[in-house]
Amino acid sequence: MTDLLTVAGLETQFRTREGLVHAVNGVSFNLKEGETLGIVGESGCGKSVTVMSMLRLIPSPPGKVVAGQAIYQGKDLLKMSDEEIRHIRGAQISMVFQDPMTSFNPVLTIGRQLAEPLEIHNGLSLQQAYDRAVQMLEMVGIPRAKERLNDYPHQFSGGMRQRVMIAMALICSPQILIADEPTTALDVTIQAQIVELVKRLRDELGMAIIWITHDLGIIAGLADRVSVMYGGYIIEEALVKELYANPTHPYTLGLLNSLPRMDETDHRRLYSIDGLPPVLLEKPNYCPFAPRCAYAVEHCWHENPSLIPVGPGHTVACWVDPATGRER
């Protein structure tokens, strides 16, 4: 399979009152056709900023993509003109956002908002676009789709709205769907429904997916490959089975240990990683996880590790091998 999207050395900063925030520090990854890539990490680790930077949706000022490239179909998304990237947004790369309550315009009907990408990118008339919108709504499982076109977002429940959001993202048959924590704001039962829906749509439509989440449980059943982010860096990347079977970075280990397990028999306290997420006001010259890391050695405080291969398709940014506790 060929690479659909290649991101290299992406760096994004925000100018704030407190100083320059280094939100994303040289992130590189690639996405193959039809593949599902999971990006995992805690709040503020830079996962959303990474994908928003790619589509140039970072509010600027204060945000700025200062380095890197994102090659899609031989062209750099970060260097193309505003008009060029506009034709890619929503048509070839589209996004589903976290909060379905606030991500729809409250004063426009669902039909109007669904039809917009088709009008802009495919030159369809409003009527043609409405017909296609009905098909999409039926596809994502909205009952009485035709009547509901004239409803406003507040007349839908949260789960239904996220379905409509997915329909809207897929209405132009994009090659890449970026889902930015699409299930975080939903009930657990609805979360499962949305994940199932996306899986089904992926099998039917064959688009590649970048799924951002902090929920390792969702990723396990959905992604082909996972990138774990911490403090604006990707610190581990592996095929999904490899990552769960053989987590190597102490942070990934910590995350997996923090999951409550159904088959737990001894009633111990749920594990949590000590300390707080890093303040990103400076680019550290040490490992950003070192202050919270149980395995940290002297070396970790002097040099920030870069990704090194530890297995087939498995890379990790750590000086220490947690299996032995010794420096690599």
């Binding site: 589509l55 949706l57 506009r86 034709h87 890619i88 947004r89 929503g90 048509a91 589209s94 996004m95 956002f97 991500s103 729809f104 315009n105 917009e116 990408p117 802009i120 990118h121 809207m168």
Partner: peptide
Amino acid sequence: RTARAKGLQ
């Protein structure tokens, strides 16, 4: 942001 992500002018 959604509107921009859809590619609107």
